[in-house]
Nucleic acid binder design. Structure first.
Length: 277
DNA sequence: CACCACCCCTGGACGC
DNA sequence: TGCGTCCAGGGGTGGT
């Protein structure tokens, strides 16, 4: 379940190990995780160096000095990590892609559920116009004005809007519930019913919930590990996610579970009342 | 156009 | 123990 904080942690731990390094070989164990499937090794950086690793929302972009770009989605269970020379990965299965670097290290892409993958682009410009332009502003720095503009007069539940990457890029199910709890907003509230103050508060809560999670190295529930194979610790600090039936940490009332936009949703009936007033 | 249901996939939890 | 079933969810697609 990598969301923005996990992807940002992967970026931050991967960059010092990969940026500036040449790519000596690329091994594709499962061709269908790469799109287009028949792209050659050069499109995956062979013979070039990594110039930069960028992130927008939950997506990463590995920019090669050749100008080519590999966009990586971690999906649900994707991992991107570095192995020192001779080191063995924690698990050898589902290792779809390996980049051998000029310092002997190997960068591995592992993704058991294969909701993730690698998309290849001719340039950063192509990635932007074909992909990133359709995403909303990055959630880590979302401003109230932009959030309000993108919610507009939508009748959808606010939680569905937060999960929509075109509205806001980077929030997934965990941090949507956490941000709504922090803001005291009921997840079912139609977006257009939010007051100006509520939207402003929500934008601030999205930023702070994500910032806190980034500083904890993200949340590790099942598969998530950073590029150094370390788990995050934010999962111990969830206030609502995965806690339906347990007491609210603020008011002790029982947290209520449900579903919004096909996603398991937990909220506090007292701290997040439906009738916003 | 806006929105929603469905589907992709695997591992882990749970019931029998 | 082992087997079947359900569930987790990011994001694309196709239907309403």
């Amino acid at each position: 379940m990598p969301e923005l904080p996990e992807v940002e942690t992967v970026r931050a731990t991967l960059a010092p190990r990969w940026v500036g390094r040449g790519i000596e070989s690329v091994r594709v164990a499962r061709a269908d995780v790469v799109r287009p499937r028949d792209a050659g090794a050069r499109a995956l950086g062979l013979g070039s160096r990594v110039a930069d690793i960028l992130r927008h929302g939950k997506q990463l972009a590995v920019v090669f000095e050749s100008g080519l770009v590999a966009q990586v989605h971690l999906g649900m269970s994707g991992q991107l990590f570095v192995l020192a020379p001779g080191a063995a990965p924690p698990r050898a299965d589902h290792l779809h892609l390996r980049w051998r670097l000029d310092d002997g290290c190997t960068v591995c892409f592992r993704d058991p559920r294969r909701f993730g993958g690698v998309w290849l682009f001719d340039s950063l410009d192509a990635l932007r116009t074909q992909r990133w332009d359709a995403l909303g502003p990055d959630a880590l720095t979302i401003r109230a004005h932009d959030l309000r503009a993108n919610l507009r007069a939508s009748a959808r539940a606010i939680k569905a809007c937060l999960l929509d990457q075109g509205v806001l890029a980077g929030v997934g199910n965990i941090y949507a519930d956490e941000a709504l709890f922090a803001a005291g907003i009921n997840p079912h509230t139609p977006a257009r019913a939010l007051t100006r103050d509520e939207t402003t508060r929500l934008a601030a809560c999205v930023r702070s919930v994500l910032r806190d999670a980034v500083s904890a190295g993200g949340s590790s529930l099942r598969d998530y590990l950073d590029a150094e194979l370390r788990p995050g610790t934010q999962q111990t600090r969830f206030r609502v996610y995965g806690r339906a039936g347990e007491p609210c940490t603020r008011c002790a009332r029982t947290l209520q579970g449900g579903r919004v936009a096909q996603r398991t949703t937990t909220h506090c009936p007292s701290c997040q009342p439906l009738a916003s007033s």
